[in-house]
């Protein structure tokens, strides 16, 4: 009688997946997004201007419009009488207290809020005209826009005046 051949069970294989290529891809993506992302993101100040030929804006407003003037030096005045912002100093370092002090125009914000309240009382939208001198620095215009945004006024008429 022939001897029965003993069959050995197959050796247990360890199943492993190679994740190194996935980690490589992941690192590449990480480096890409690190390089592409700037953490200080740009902010926005939304303003709308009355479209040309807008008949509603040419009617006499129920509340006297507010006028903001910005001179070439960056001095901001409210209704031609009250100085609400000093001359623009480009040498100030951003982030310093002096720089922040120059950016904030609390007096202008207060006046704009009062105008908004008056307009809300008669259920109309406040009318604000911004008269900027041709050479006025853009930073000063942005300061005024920030004040308008703080006072919750999002519609403004813009005009350019000659430098004094």
């Amino acid at each position: 009688m022939a001897r029965r051949k003993k069959i050995d069970p197959p050796a247990e294989e360890e199943i492993t997946s190679n994740i190194s290529s996935m980690i490589d891809c992941c690192f590449l993506l990480l480096i890409y997004f690190l390089a592409a992302t700037s953490l200080v993101s740009e902010k926005k100040l939304d303003i709308s201007i009355p479209p040309p030929g807008d008949t509603a804006s040419s009617k006499k407003p129920k509340v006297d419009p507010g006028n903001i003037y910005v001179t070439k030096a960056g001095v901001v005045t409210w209704n031609e009488g009250l100085t609400v912002g000093e001359a623009y100093d480009p040498s100030l370092e951003p982030g310093t207290p002096a720089y922040l002090q120059q950016r904030r125009m609390e007096s202008l914000v207060e006046n704009l809020k009062m105008l908004k309240e008056q307009a809300d009382a008669v259920e109309t939208t406040p009318v604000v005209m911004l008269h900027g001198a041709a050479g006025a620095p853009h930073q000063r215009i942005v300061d005024v826009m920030a004040a308008l945004s703080e006072a919750d006024i999002h519609s403004v008429g813009l005009s350019t005046t000659a430098d004094e």
């Binding site: 902010k43 100040l45 950016r103």
Partner: peptide, 10 residues
């Protein structure tokens, strides 16, 4: 870019 004290997120 100019700086603004009061601006909203884009």
């Amino acid at each position: 870019m100019p700086h603004a004290v009061s601006a909203s997120e884009m």
